[in-house]
């Protein structure tokens, strides 16, 4: 556990000090603010809860994009700079390396996400919003972000280049998002299966509306664990090559 935290802390500090971290943070926060103003606040009169739901909807998109960019460097950068032997020859399990890396990226994403809290607070000042709704929305964002980061961690383990890692992770995230469309097009019983597998629609919309379902939490945690396990297997297999 100590080594997981050690790796996570280094990863977080490295991201905070890297140009990529600054660029992603600046772009995401600017985009979040812009979209909040345009989509959530714009478009005529709305109930505060509708504004909040729209806010979480737009944030879910930027969170997924940010996750892909934050995670692309996690392991691919170690390959590119030649620093990987430091971790791979240490008495640390491959799974702990992966979880440590993921945790560092997740802490950065969480920090980035929580900075946007001022926007729901603005809605609170001028309208009526329940803390429960805000909590549910942010929980959903963090769970969705964790799943996207785990996919990104896997992509970064597969590729030796950060650009390729981002491409693989982006493709996987988009593929998982498009299960929603497959769910609409397919016949029973596959439509339910595809809909359930979709990364966003069925599982994120309840959080947007301030509802927390155990089913959705389990789904996002399952996606996270699945891709972190796949990344660990991938890292282990690298020792054979």
């Amino acid at each position: 556990m100590k080594t997981i935290w050690l790796i996570a802390r280094r990863e977080l500090l490295a991201t905070l000090r890297s140009p990529l971290g600054f660029v992603v943070a600046a772009m995401v926060l600017a985009l979040d603010g812009l979209l909040f103003n345009l989509l959530a606040l714009g478009g005529g009169e709305k109930y505060s809860s509708e504004v909040l739901a729209q806010f979480f909807y737009t944030l879910s998109g930027t969170t997924m994009v940010a996750s892909v960019f934050i995670s692309m460097r996690l392991l691919a950068e170690e390959h590119q700079t030649g620093s990987f032997p430091l971790l791979l020859t240490a008495p640390v399990k491959d799974g702990h390396i992966i979880v440590g890396k993921f945790l560092g990226a997740f802490l950065f994403l969480a920090l980035l996400t929580l900075i946007t809290l001022y926007m729901p607070l603005l809605v609170m000042v001028h309208g009526k919003v329940s803390w429960g709704h805000v909590f549910a929305g942010y929980l959903g964002l963090l769970l969705l972000g964790a799943a996207a980061l785990a996919i990104g961690t896997f992509g970064s383990t597969v590729a030796r280049s950060q650009i390729v890692a981002a491409f693989i992770s982006g493709a996987l995230v988009v593929a998982l998002l498009l299960f929603w469309l497959l769910g609409r097009a397919a016949d029973k019983p596959l439509d339910d299966v595809f809909s359930f597998l979709a990364l966003h629609n069925m599982h994120f919309r309840p959080f947007m509306a301030g509802k927390i379902h155990l089913r959705d939490i389990v789904y996002y945690l399952s996606v996270t664990v699945f891709f972190l396990s796949a990344a660990t297997r991938m890292l282990e297999s690298r020792r054979w090559r």
């Binding site: 280094r10 490295a14 700079t81 032997p85 240490a90 640390v92």
Partner: peptide, 25 residues
């Protein structure tokens, strides 16, 4: 182990890096 290209984290100071390596090991 020291590979041909030293495995380093360039953004860290030497002291921080050695502390990290020691704790990791």
């Amino acid at each position: 182990f020291l590979p041909e290209n030293p495995p380093l984290y360039p953004e860290m100071t030497v002291a921080r890096f050695l502390r990290f390596a020691a704790l990791l090991r």
